[in-house]
Design a protein around this nucleic acid. Sequence first.
DNA 1: GGTACAGTTAGCTGTTCAGCTAAATGATCG
DNA 2: CGATCATTTAGCTGAACAGCTAACTGTACC
Lengths: 131, 131
Amino acid sequence: MERMLAALKALADRNRLRIVAALDGADELCACQITGLLAVTGATVSRHLAVLERAGLVNKRRAGRWIWYRLAAAPRYEDLLIWLRRATAGDRRLAADRKTLAKILAVDPADYCRRQRSNAGLACARTEKNR
Amino acid sequence: MERMLAALKALADRNRLRIVAALDGADELCACQITGLLAVTGATVSRHLAVLERAGLVNKRRAGRWIWYRLAAAPRYEDLLIWLRRATAGDRRLAADRKTLAKILAVDPADYCRRQRSNAGLACARTEKNR
DNA sequence: GGTACAGTTAGCTGTTCAGCTAAATGATCG
DNA sequence: CGATCATTTAGCTGAACAGCTAACTGTACC
């Protein structure tokens, strides 16, 4: 029950749900790309990713300076993800996220991270409002 | 996304998860029986049930003095419940709840509610600890 | 080795929320 | 009607937690 509750609590947050949906579309993203997508601080994203990892929902992989995250292939969460996909099917916010993510993925990750650091407000970030 | 988040938040609480599991076993329960099961205040149970109802997870039905709750038959939450059943399959706490619930259901509801009011600590309540 | 860089951790603030008690509501029964 | 009973609402307290800034930890590149 604890593990299950951890998973539900991990998903019961708007930004973490957006992260999971994004990872479900693109299969691997670095923390920096997710930061750009959500338009929140890197520190905040880092904590969200830690919550998702502790719940066993995502895995991380270090590659040099970057850390890449992907959805965990846990049979335990198979049905949950199936529900999640259906329930998010027509969602506007997530549709917008997919468009933003496509723009982010079109750029080389190294360039994207550098640009994000120098210029806090990117195209994707400017159009989003949190809360 | 809002409705979905509401459902996830509703389930991301130990006692509400116990309520849903209980309703999934016995198909209809009155607030008083749930209060006995969880061993918390009636006021607390009432708020939990309101959260579950607002999320569309349960329905209520008034019958005289009592109010009966049951799981909503919403296709929207079908897959979620499927996952929930599998994920809770071997859970000890919920197994204990099922035993307690059997005892509660063995008594006439009217008697049960009256007895609960006069004597705060019932057999089922004494053996449970919250948090 | 020093600098720059990706990500994390620490510490703060404001909000949300689960639990309680006490008062209110709605329904039955004498 | 008045009493009683099942449930809800109001108001409180303490814990959990999302967001931020600033300081730290590794890693790569010069």
